[in-house]
């Protein structure tokens, strides 16, 4: 086993933290909330940019009849 792995196994966590949370006890609820907001912002900005900024910036090269 290499030294770096040893270091990693023995020194995995920051000293002096109030608590240690393992994989199974951690649900990233805050991340889910933030990313949901991000999803909504992306959708809103996309619709605005495409249908207001772009489509109203006419004339646009089109098939005309």
């Amino acid at each position: 086993m290499g030294e770096s792995e040893l270091r990693r196994e023995t020194g995995g966590d920051e000293p002096g933290l109030p608590r240690e949370i393992g994989h199974d006890e951690f649900d990233p609820t805050g991340t889910l909330a933030l990313i949901t907001l991000y999803f909504l912002v992306l959708v809103a900005m996309w619709l605005f940019t495409y249908f207001i900024e772009f489509v109203d910036n006419d004339p646009t090269p089109m098939l005309l009849t």
């Binding site: 646009t60 098939l63 005309l64």
Partner: peptide
């Protein structure tokens, strides 16, 4: 959305 722009609105590319 892009497909709608091409097919629905008839926007063509150079």
């Amino acid at each position: 959305t892009i497909t709608y722009g091409a097919v629905g609105l008839g926007i063509t590319m150079v």
